[in-house]
Structures are given as structure tokens and as C-alpha cells.
Amino acid sequence: MSKRVTFRSRLLPWFLLAPQLLVLLLFFFWPAGQAIVQALFMVEPFSGELQWVGLLNFEQLFQSSAYRQAILVTIVFCAATAALAMFLGLFLAVLVDRVVRGRTVYRTLAIWPYAVAPAIAGALFLFLLDPAMGVLAFALRQGLGLAWDPSLDATHATILVVLAAAWKQVAYNFVFFLAGLQAIPRILIEAAALDGAGPWQRSLRVILPLLSPTAFFLLVMNLVYAFFDTFGIVATTTEGGPGGATRILVFKVWEDGFVGLDLGSSAAQSVILMAIVVSLTVLQFRFLEKRVQYAG
């Protein structure tokens, strides 16, 4: 099936790969290796002096109720963010796919939020949902009579960070879903219609299965995004509060490392975070990928 290109020299492919490998080595493998080493030590912040503690950093993390809370918070946050961002992305893509006139305009508009940095996205939503002066907060209070207060209410705070995180990622999902939709051959849909399948059945039986590679790819990307890139959103909005309700793992890594100057524990937390994401991705490929249909 697959095409294979063969090089005559065995060195040439390595040579061609070298720039990319070098970048990976320098900016991923080396720091990751450092984190794994540091996780086994207590680290003096100024001198960088290491004190061997074995697995103590990990032990203490799992004994700490704050850390266990952060794991739970992260699971809820990532699942909600990925689900919301993917649903909205798909929804918009379906709408734009049906539009005939002005498609480029809609498409361009829907892509914009992706260009916004997470910290700015956080600041925007903070502004909209600030209990004292936010426009949306005002609408919630006046319109729904809801005592909106993300500074004290854990659920409100979670909604705030999930909204900001998802909003930013919708654009990304939209682009891929739209491309996926447009790649579906018209002929298949028309054939299904001729066979008597209604719009609902066509979406469920034809379009969705053909969209599954895109959806699968996006699931992986969205989860990775939610785990790592959302630091800026939490940092500019809730700072992990109230009562730790939005303290996601990546924020805690920063807080313990840079505010608390506990670099050993911070490194151990990075390692755990890395392990979680790696295993999630492996699981996704092993189990979910089987349901994905790649062939067009």
C-alpha cells in the first residue's frame, strides 16, 4: 500500500532529519531529561545544589490533598474544555460548510481567536465575567438572577476558565473540521440520499465516520492543549482559586517552582504531567484509533 522512498546512502536521511532532531533534542529531550533527574532531588534555587531524596518528591505529592485535588480539577477541566471546543468547532464548521455565499468571510472570522495568546484570552474573559464590572456577569445577574461570583464560587470559576480555554481552541478545531467536511466526496452523500437516508442519517452514518480521523486527531491535540497551554488563562484569571478549584496541574508546577521555589517538587510534577499526557496519547492511539476510518 504505502509508497516507500529509498535513499542510497544511509547517512543522507539522518542528515536531512538533523535540523528537526536537533531542535527536538535541545528543546524537548534535554529539558525533559533534566526534569526527570531533578525530580529525584531537592534543589537549592540559587546554587542549583542537589540533594538526593529518591522518590520522596513523588511520595509527598501523592500524600498531599492539594495535589490530589489538582489532578481531579485537571481531569474535569481538560474534558470540559476539549468537549466544548470540539463541539463548537464542529458546529461552526457544519454551518460554514452549508454556506454558499461569503464562506471565506465566515471562515476568516472564525479563525481569529486562534491568534490570541492564552493569557490575553484569559484577560478578555476575566473582563467580560468580572463579578464587579463584567458585561456578561451583569447580564447573568440581571437577566437570569444568578449571583455570579467566580471569586468565591468554584463552579463559576471553573466555567470561566473552561470558556476562555475552549473559546481559543474553537478556531483550531473549526479549521480542521471544515477541511474534513470538505474532503468528504459529495458523491457518497448523494448516493446515501438516493438510497433514502435523511439528513440526520446521512450525518450519523456517512459524514461522522468519514470525519473520525479528523476528530481523533483533534481530540489528541485538544487534550494536549488543555493540559499544557492553558497556564496563561489560569494565571490571568483565577490564579487557581477559589480554594484551589481551578488549580490545574500545569499551574501548580509553576506555582510550586517559581513562587514557592521548590524546584524538586516542581520537577516531579512535570514528570507526572508528562507521564499522564504520554499515557493518554498512547491509550488514545491503541483504543480509539481502531474505530477511526482512514480510507476515503
Binding site: 492539594a66 468565591l152 480554594g243
Partner: peptide, 19 residues
């Protein structure tokens, strides 16, 4: 030691009290 985080531990818990 690491007093900022010691403070944070209190702030976290107090927020649960007010809520």
C-alpha cells in the same frame, strides 16, 4: 521558609470558609 506558598495554603482554605 517558602512563605509565599505557606500563605497560599491559608488563602485557599479561607476561600472555602467564606464560600
Amino acid at each position: 521558609g517558602n512563605y509565599e506558598n505557606v500563605r497560599k495554603a491559608l488563602t485557599d482554605q479561607l476561600e472555602l470558609v467564606w464560600a
